[in-house]
Design a protein around this nucleic acid. Sequence first.
DNA 1: TTTGTTGTTTCACTATTTGAAACTTAATCT
DNA 2: AGATTAAGTTTCAAATAGTGAAACAACAAA
Lengths: 291, 291
Amino acid sequence: MVSKAIHGKFVNPFPEDKHRKQGDARMTESKGGDGTVGKALDVLDLIASFNRPVRFAELQGKSPFPKATLYRLIQTLTHQNMLAQDPDTGAYSPGIRLVRLAHAAWQQSSLAPIARPHIDDLSRQAGQTIHLAQLDGGQVLYVDKRNAREPVDMFSQAGKVGPGYCTGVGKAMLAFLTETELEAVLARQSFHRFTPSTLTTKDALWTEFEEIRASGYAFDREEHEAGIICIAAPILSNGGRVIGGLSITGTLLKTTLAELESFAPLLLQTAQKIAEDAESWRFPGQQTANR
Amino acid sequence: MVSKAIHGKFVNPFPEDKHRKQGDARMTESKGGDGTVGKALDVLDLIASFNRPVRFAELQGKSPFPKATLYRLIQTLTHQNMLAQDPDTGAYSPGIRLVRLAHAAWQQSSLAPIARPHIDDLSRQAGQTIHLAQLDGGQVLYVDKRNAREPVDMFSQAGKVGPGYCTGVGKAMLAFLTETELEAVLARQSFHRFTPSTLTTKDALWTEFEEIRASGYAFDREEHEAGIICIAAPILSNGGRVIGGLSITGTLLKTTLAELESFAPLLLQTAQKIAEDAESWRFPGQQTANR
DNA sequence: TTTGTTGTTTCACTATTTGAAACTTAATCT
DNA sequence: AGATTAAGTTTCAAATAGTGAAACAACAAA
């Protein structure tokens, strides 16, 4: 495949010069990004997306890079322990070095440590499942979770990703992005119809965003998973920038939208507290919607 | 020059450590890097090692790379969301994209998911703190933990690193490496004396390794932290390869080495069970000692 | 204002990366 | 067994992407 057209050394959508001048700020390309490092990270993402060990040939099929290049990138990543290779099958999976790096990331760049006491409280008071999320490349990244009852089930949940356009936290966060950011994010949504209730058009979303901005919170009306509903609020910095999202989730078997809505004041109040703490802790904040 | 060509596609057995750090901090983390990707990852590691947001100037002081190069690397990483930059202070910290990647890594390349039920059992039976670790670049990387009583405290613990030469799990794992692997690992240890009991010479360690191999388990006799002791065992694959380590930890206030030793059979049995499960789940295993 | 510190860009030079193709296993078929 | 196909690895000339001294901008302090 990939004949002459794409295999250019540096996949640049805009045939500018080799030297990217300051010019157009961050025209962040989602993928195929900057230099060799960007390519390597793409490969990492690709491998991670399989959620199981993958062999070289399979990767080659899904990757735009020519065989030799892909091979070298993988070699490098493996040497760096960013990938682990099964000695028997030769299959690759994300490496443990990532776990170490993520520890630092979670502690420093996520809202989780700051929000912890607050979501503990919220969980106790609402008696429901709580999700704390942030935006990452247009997707919802869950950074913490409280199960109503059971002991925490952390790492297996933190790091999970979900769609931005059909989850409560997703919509709550998107609704408060700037128009530019939103445009960028929407362009990256798949608009897959998960359930009959899923909103699959920009227009439908846009309308809903207005309601969300008006009320301050969003609902997930079984849009991602049948029987699962939630109420969610954005966590906004002083400057009005979206730094995260918070939600209370339940199943239609045990609760109703009306009941969840009764938690709205508590939810908003918690989101507010988290925002304040984040501010005073000089939280890095950098929560741009693009990648 | 700083970046001398390694170019060999296949890493030379012992890559000379070219990036010599001046006024090296405590992190024994500097490993050579292949190509630009390696350098970028070095920078990531460096930033992560600060455990707080760092500004450019500070990084420049600790990094072997010239200003412009460092700058570009950081730019790229930030672009890729591997780093987050505080919009106000301009300080950098590890980015959330890492959290997402780590989720995949933790699930696929760590022993944690497989070992979970077993360490739950062990924790219940021993009523002590349990650590599950793996080797990462000569250091001990904790991938899971059970606190005797309190609910799990996951992400805040998983991803943590510790020295290999003066922790129970560390010694248990090192003792069962091949001589070549061990040599490589020992070369990367700092041999910092944490407490009066810390073993600070290769010889002392070597002797201890023999005992560990004989008994099958290792002790930490306050070598890393005063008052903290533990008993640890390696988790070995069928082929005898070290795939992880497991430990039972206590404080001298509440327990003794003798009491911990009484758990030895249980500990070894658990390690064995985990190994079996790992094997049958075709665990990637790739647990080479070098980076 | 000047000075100093920190962060950003330039630009000539070149070393690293590139990728088609050749090659070496490892598996599968006849 | 030998022949055939697929998977993975290495080569090598070409050129892109990376380098880093130094100039530059932005901003704070003197």
